[in-house]
Amino acid sequence: MTDARKRLNSRDFADTVAEEMIVSRSFWADARRRFLGHRLAVFSVFMLLALVLFALFGHAFARWSFEEIDWNVLGRIKTEGAPSLDNGHWFGVDELGRDLYARVVQGTRTSLMVGFVAGPLAVLLGATLGALAGYFGGRLDQIITGFYTIWISIPYIIFFVVWQAFFGRSLTQMIIVIIIVNWTAGLLIVRGQVMMLKHREFVDAARMLGMSDLAIIFKHLAPNILWVIVIYTSIVIPEVIMAESLVSFLGVGIQEPNTSWGALISEGARTMTFGTLWQLAFPAAFFVIAQVSLYYIGDGLRDALDPKDRR
Protein backbone atom coordinates (compact mmCIF):
# COMPACT_ATOMS: atom_id res chain seq x y z
CA MET A 1 0.00 0.00 0.00
CA THR A 2 3.01 2.24 0.14
CA ASP A 3 2.98 2.76 -3.61
CA ALA A 4 -0.34 4.52 -3.40
CA ARG A 5 1.10 6.64 -0.66
CA LYS A 6 4.14 7.41 -2.79
CA ARG A 7 2.01 8.54 -5.69
CA LEU A 8 0.01 10.81 -3.46
CA ASN A 9 3.23 12.46 -2.37
CA SER A 10 4.54 12.99 -5.86
CA ARG A 11 4.87 16.46 -7.23
CA ASP A 12 2.92 16.08 -10.47
CA PHE A 13 0.06 14.58 -8.56
CA ALA A 14 -0.19 17.67 -6.43
CA ASP A 15 0.02 19.81 -9.53
CA THR A 16 -2.78 18.03 -11.31
CA VAL A 17 -4.93 18.31 -8.29
CA ALA A 18 -4.30 21.96 -7.82
CA GLU A 19 -5.44 22.48 -11.40
CA GLU A 20 -8.99 21.75 -10.53
CA MET A 21 -10.47 23.45 -7.58
CA ILE A 22 -12.71 21.21 -5.74
CA VAL A 23 -14.90 23.21 -3.45
CA SER A 24 -17.78 22.74 -5.80
CA ARG A 25 -20.68 20.59 -4.79
CA SER A 26 -20.51 18.74 -8.06
CA PHE A 27 -17.09 17.44 -7.11
CA TRP A 28 -18.46 15.38 -4.26
CA ALA A 29 -21.51 14.41 -6.24
CA ASP A 30 -19.30 13.23 -9.10
CA ALA A 31 -17.06 11.43 -6.67
CA ARG A 32 -20.01 9.62 -5.16
CA ARG A 33 -21.20 8.57 -8.59
CA ARG A 34 -17.75 7.29 -9.49
CA PHE A 35 -17.42 5.46 -6.21
CA LEU A 36 -20.80 3.79 -6.65
CA GLY A 37 -19.65 2.72 -10.10
CA HIS A 38 -16.79 0.78 -8.51
CA ARG A 39 -18.60 -2.44 -7.76
CA LEU A 40 -15.94 -4.11 -5.64
CA ALA A 41 -15.66 -1.02 -3.50
CA VAL A 42 -19.38 -0.85 -2.92
CA PHE A 43 -19.47 -4.52 -2.07
CA SER A 44 -16.58 -3.93 0.33
CA VAL A 45 -18.51 -1.18 2.06
CA PHE A 46 -21.22 -3.69 2.78
CA MET A 47 -18.68 -6.21 4.04
CA LEU A 48 -17.23 -3.62 6.36
CA LEU A 49 -20.66 -2.59 7.52
CA ALA A 50 -21.36 -6.21 8.34
CA LEU A 51 -18.17 -6.32 10.41
CA VAL A 52 -19.17 -3.17 12.28
CA LEU A 53 -22.61 -4.61 13.02
CA PHE A 54 -20.92 -7.80 14.11
CA ALA A 55 -18.71 -5.84 16.51
CA LEU A 56 -21.64 -3.86 17.89
CA PHE A 57 -24.32 -6.49 18.20
CA GLY A 58 -22.45 -9.77 17.94
CA HIS A 59 -22.56 -10.23 21.68
CA ALA A 60 -26.30 -10.55 21.54
CA PHE A 61 -25.91 -13.87 19.79
CA ALA A 62 -23.20 -15.22 22.05
CA ARG A 63 -24.13 -17.77 24.64
CA TRP A 64 -20.95 -17.17 26.57
CA SER A 65 -19.08 -14.07 27.60
CA PHE A 66 -15.59 -13.52 26.29
CA GLU A 67 -13.94 -14.00 29.69
CA GLU A 68 -15.93 -16.97 30.94
CA ILE A 69 -14.19 -20.31 30.99
CA ASP A 70 -16.25 -23.30 29.92
CA TRP A 71 -15.07 -25.92 32.42
CA ASN A 72 -16.91 -28.62 30.49
CA VAL A 73 -14.52 -28.55 27.60
CA LEU A 74 -11.34 -27.45 29.36
CA GLY A 75 -8.74 -30.18 29.08
CA ARG A 76 -10.53 -31.75 26.12
CA ILE A 77 -10.39 -28.78 23.82
CA LYS A 78 -9.03 -30.66 20.86
CA THR A 79 -11.95 -33.04 20.84
CA GLU A 80 -14.78 -31.03 22.33
CA GLY A 81 -13.74 -27.43 21.82
CA ALA A 82 -14.33 -27.35 18.11
CA PRO A 83 -17.05 -25.12 16.64
CA SER A 84 -20.39 -26.56 17.58
CA LEU A 85 -24.02 -25.54 17.55
CA ASP A 86 -24.88 -27.75 20.49
CA ASN A 87 -22.80 -26.19 23.25
CA GLY A 88 -23.14 -22.67 21.86
CA HIS A 89 -19.49 -22.19 20.96
CA TRP A 90 -20.18 -21.18 17.36
CA PHE A 91 -16.49 -20.69 16.66
CA GLY A 92 -15.25 -23.21 19.18
CA VAL A 93 -13.25 -22.26 22.26
CA ASP A 94 -9.75 -20.91 22.74
CA GLU A 95 -6.96 -22.70 24.56
CA LEU A 96 -8.28 -21.59 27.93
CA GLY A 97 -11.76 -22.84 27.17
CA ARG A 98 -13.23 -19.40 26.52
CA ASP A 99 -15.84 -18.92 23.83
CA LEU A 100 -14.03 -17.98 20.61
CA TYR A 101 -17.11 -16.40 19.05
CA ALA A 102 -17.42 -13.95 21.91
CA ARG A 103 -13.70 -13.32 21.78
CA VAL A 104 -13.78 -12.64 18.04
CA VAL A 105 -16.61 -10.16 18.59
CA GLN A 106 -14.50 -8.52 21.27
CA GLY A 107 -11.39 -8.59 19.06
CA THR A 108 -13.27 -7.13 16.11
CA ARG A 109 -14.45 -4.35 18.36
CA THR A 110 -10.91 -3.54 19.47
CA SER A 111 -9.35 -3.73 16.04
CA LEU A 112 -12.01 -1.65 14.33
CA MET A 113 -11.96 0.83 17.16
CA VAL A 114 -8.21 1.21 16.87
CA GLY A 115 -8.46 1.54 13.10
CA PHE A 116 -11.32 3.99 12.96
CA VAL A 117 -10.30 6.13 15.90
CA ALA A 118 -6.52 6.14 15.75
CA GLY A 119 -6.30 6.17 11.94
CA PRO A 120 -8.35 9.33 11.31
CA LEU A 121 -6.89 11.11 14.34
CA ALA A 122 -3.36 10.37 13.18
CA VAL A 123 -4.12 11.69 9.69
CA LEU A 124 -5.79 14.73 11.19
CA LEU A 125 -2.76 15.48 13.33
CA GLY A 126 -0.42 15.11 10.36
CA ALA A 127 -2.73 17.17 8.17
CA THR A 128 -2.89 19.96 10.72
CA LEU A 129 0.87 20.06 11.09
CA GLY A 130 1.26 19.88 7.33
CA ALA A 131 -1.21 22.71 6.85
CA LEU A 132 0.60 24.86 9.38
CA ALA A 133 3.97 24.11 7.80
CA GLY A 134 2.67 24.85 4.34
CA TYR A 135 0.76 27.96 5.31
CA PHE A 136 3.33 29.69 7.46
CA GLY A 137 6.42 28.32 5.78
CA GLY A 138 9.84 29.51 6.96
CA ARG A 139 11.18 28.36 10.28
CA LEU A 140 8.11 26.41 11.31
CA ASP A 141 8.12 24.59 8.01
CA GLN A 142 11.78 23.70 8.39
CA ILE A 143 11.29 22.37 11.88
CA ILE A 144 8.27 20.29 10.99
CA THR A 145 9.69 18.81 7.80
CA GLY A 146 13.06 18.24 9.46
CA PHE A 147 11.43 16.34 12.25
CA TYR A 148 9.36 14.48 9.70
CA THR A 149 12.46 13.30 7.86
CA ILE A 150 14.04 12.04 11.03
CA TRP A 151 10.86 10.41 12.19
CA ILE A 152 10.15 8.34 9.12
CA SER A 153 13.59 6.76 9.27
CA ILE A 154 12.89 5.20 12.66
CA PRO A 155 11.21 1.78 12.50
CA TYR A 156 7.86 2.36 14.20
CA ILE A 157 7.91 -0.88 16.12
CA ILE A 158 10.39 0.69 18.51
CA PHE A 159 7.87 3.19 19.79
CA PHE A 160 5.07 0.74 19.88
CA VAL A 161 6.92 -1.71 21.99
CA VAL A 162 8.53 0.81 24.28
CA TRP A 163 5.38 2.80 24.79
CA GLN A 164 3.18 -0.19 25.42
CA ALA A 165 5.67 -1.68 27.79
CA PHE A 166 5.98 1.43 29.88
CA PHE A 167 2.59 3.06 29.76
CA GLY A 168 0.46 0.01 29.98
CA ARG A 169 -1.48 -1.95 27.48
CA SER A 170 -4.91 -0.42 27.51
CA LEU A 171 -6.92 0.49 24.45
CA THR A 172 -6.39 4.19 25.12
CA GLN A 173 -2.64 3.82 25.28
CA MET A 174 -2.73 1.79 22.10
CA ILE A 175 -4.64 4.52 20.33
CA ILE A 176 -2.30 7.18 21.64
CA VAL A 177 0.84 5.41 20.54
CA ILE A 178 -0.63 4.70 17.12
CA ILE A 179 -1.33 8.37 16.68
CA ILE A 180 2.21 9.21 17.76
CA VAL A 181 3.67 6.70 15.39
CA ASN A 182 1.50 7.70 12.43
CA TRP A 183 1.44 11.46 12.75
CA THR A 184 3.52 11.71 9.60
CA ALA A 185 0.76 10.23 7.46
CA GLY A 186 -0.60 12.81 5.07
CA LEU A 187 1.70 15.54 6.33
CA LEU A 188 3.67 16.10 3.15
CA ILE A 189 0.78 16.09 0.76
CA VAL A 190 -1.34 18.44 2.81
CA ARG A 191 1.65 20.73 3.17
CA GLY A 192 2.10 20.70 -0.60
CA GLN A 193 -1.56 21.35 -1.25
CA VAL A 194 -1.68 24.24 1.16
CA MET A 195 1.45 25.76 -0.29
CA MET A 196 -0.20 25.66 -3.68
CA LEU A 197 -3.56 26.96 -2.54
CA LYS A 198 -2.37 29.76 -0.35
CA HIS A 199 -1.47 31.88 -3.36
CA ARG A 200 -4.92 31.62 -4.88
CA GLU A 201 -7.06 34.73 -5.19
CA PHE A 202 -9.72 33.54 -2.82
CA VAL A 203 -7.16 33.33 -0.05
CA ASP A 204 -5.93 36.83 -0.78
CA ALA A 205 -9.50 38.03 -0.80
CA ALA A 206 -10.16 36.47 2.56
CA ARG A 207 -7.05 38.05 3.99
CA MET A 208 -8.11 41.41 2.62
CA LEU A 209 -11.41 40.99 4.41
CA GLY A 210 -9.45 40.72 7.61
CA MET A 211 -9.82 37.00 8.27
CA SER A 212 -7.27 35.54 10.60
CA ASP A 213 -4.78 32.96 9.40
CA LEU A 214 -6.40 30.15 11.31
CA ALA A 215 -9.83 31.07 10.02
CA ILE A 216 -8.47 31.02 6.49
CA ILE A 217 -6.91 27.62 7.04
CA PHE A 218 -10.06 26.08 8.45
CA LYS A 219 -12.74 27.89 6.49
CA HIS A 220 -11.12 28.13 3.08
CA LEU A 221 -8.27 25.73 2.76
CA ALA A 222 -9.66 22.77 4.65
CA PRO A 223 -12.59 22.10 2.29
CA ASN A 224 -10.17 22.05 -0.60
CA ILE A 225 -7.90 19.45 0.91
CA LEU A 226 -10.60 17.37 2.50
CA TRP A 227 -10.51 14.88 -0.32
CA VAL A 228 -6.77 14.28 0.19
CA ILE A 229 -7.45 13.60 3.82
CA VAL A 230 -10.19 11.17 2.89
CA ILE A 231 -7.90 9.21 0.57
CA TYR A 232 -5.13 9.20 3.11
CA THR A 233 -7.36 8.03 5.89
CA SER A 234 -8.52 5.15 3.75
CA ILE A 235 -4.92 4.11 3.33
CA VAL A 236 -3.95 4.57 6.96
CA ILE A 237 -6.84 2.72 8.58
CA PRO A 238 -5.89 -0.77 7.32
CA GLU A 239 -2.24 -0.03 8.07
CA VAL A 240 -3.12 0.89 11.60
CA ILE A 241 -5.21 -2.21 12.10
CA MET A 242 -2.33 -4.22 10.77
CA ALA A 243 0.12 -2.50 13.11
CA GLU A 244 -2.08 -3.08 16.13
CA SER A 245 -2.45 -6.71 15.21
CA LEU A 246 1.29 -7.08 14.84
CA VAL A 247 2.10 -5.69 18.28
CA SER A 248 -0.72 -7.66 19.83
CA PHE A 249 0.72 -10.70 18.14
CA LEU A 250 4.05 -9.91 19.75
CA GLY A 251 2.33 -9.88 23.12
CA VAL A 252 2.79 -6.20 23.80
CA GLY A 253 -0.63 -5.10 22.57
CA ILE A 254 -4.02 -5.15 24.22
CA GLN A 255 -4.16 -6.60 27.76
CA GLU A 256 -5.94 -9.87 28.50
CA PRO A 257 -8.78 -10.73 28.81
CA ASN A 258 -9.44 -8.06 26.20
CA THR A 259 -8.26 -9.08 22.82
CA SER A 260 -7.87 -8.05 19.20
CA TRP A 261 -7.51 -9.79 15.86
CA GLY A 262 -3.75 -9.85 16.19
CA ALA A 263 -3.84 -11.29 19.68
CA LEU A 264 -6.34 -13.95 18.61
CA ILE A 265 -4.33 -14.87 15.54
CA SER A 266 -1.29 -15.10 17.75
CA GLU A 267 -3.00 -17.51 20.15
CA GLY A 268 -4.36 -19.51 17.27
CA ALA A 269 -0.92 -19.74 15.70
CA ARG A 270 0.62 -20.87 18.97
CA THR A 271 -1.86 -23.66 19.46
CA MET A 272 -2.24 -24.94 15.92
CA THR A 273 0.29 -27.68 16.66
CA PHE A 274 -2.39 -29.20 18.88
CA GLY A 275 -4.81 -29.51 15.99
CA THR A 276 -7.12 -26.72 17.11
CA LEU A 277 -7.05 -25.01 13.76
CA TRP A 278 -10.28 -23.08 14.22
CA GLN A 279 -8.48 -20.93 16.77
CA LEU A 280 -6.35 -19.58 13.94
CA ALA A 281 -8.86 -19.76 11.12
CA PHE A 282 -11.67 -17.58 12.48
CA PRO A 283 -9.66 -14.56 13.58
CA ALA A 284 -7.45 -14.78 10.50
CA ALA A 285 -10.50 -14.87 8.25
CA PHE A 286 -11.99 -11.80 9.91
CA PHE A 287 -8.71 -10.01 9.65
CA VAL A 288 -8.24 -10.82 6.00
CA ILE A 289 -11.83 -9.92 5.11
CA ALA A 290 -11.40 -6.57 6.79
CA GLN A 291 -8.10 -5.92 5.04
CA VAL A 292 -9.46 -6.86 1.63
CA SER A 293 -12.56 -4.72 2.11
CA LEU A 294 -10.55 -1.76 3.28
CA TYR A 295 -8.17 -2.21 0.37
CA TYR A 296 -10.95 -2.04 -2.18
CA ILE A 297 -12.72 0.81 -0.45
CA GLY A 298 -9.45 2.74 -0.56
CA ASP A 299 -9.10 1.79 -4.21
CA GLY A 300 -12.61 3.03 -4.93
CA LEU A 301 -12.00 6.27 -3.08
CA ARG A 302 -8.81 6.88 -5.00
CA ASP A 303 -10.60 6.25 -8.28
CA ALA A 304 -13.41 8.54 -7.25
CA LEU A 305 -11.36 11.40 -5.86
CA ASP A 306 -8.02 11.29 -7.58
CA PRO A 307 -8.13 13.55 -10.64
CA LYS A 308 -5.30 11.76 -12.41
CA ASP A 309 -7.11 8.47 -12.61
CA ARG A 310 -10.28 10.13 -13.80
CA ARG A 311 -11.54 9.68 -17.31
Partner: peptide, 19 residues
Protein backbone atom coordinates in the same frame (compact mmCIF):
# COMPACT_ATOMS: atom_id res chain seq x y z
CA UNK B 1 -0.61 -11.80 -1.11
CA UNK B 2 -0.11 -8.13 -0.46
CA UNK B 3 -3.01 -8.26 1.92
CA UNK B 4 -1.52 -11.14 3.90
CA UNK B 5 0.80 -9.71 6.50
CA UNK B 6 3.70 -11.78 7.73
CA UNK B 7 1.99 -12.67 10.99
CA UNK B 8 -0.88 -14.33 9.17
CA UNK B 9 1.34 -15.91 6.55
CA UNK B 10 3.88 -17.34 8.98
CA UNK B 11 1.42 -19.59 10.84
CA UNK B 12 -0.04 -20.74 7.53
CA UNK B 13 3.42 -21.63 6.24
CA UNK B 14 4.22 -23.56 9.41
CA UNK B 15 0.89 -25.30 9.17
CA UNK B 16 1.66 -26.45 5.65
CA UNK B 17 5.38 -27.06 5.56
CA UNK B 18 5.94 -28.25 9.08
CA UNK B 19 2.75 -29.68 10.47
Amino acid sequence: SQIFPNFVLAPILVLLFTL
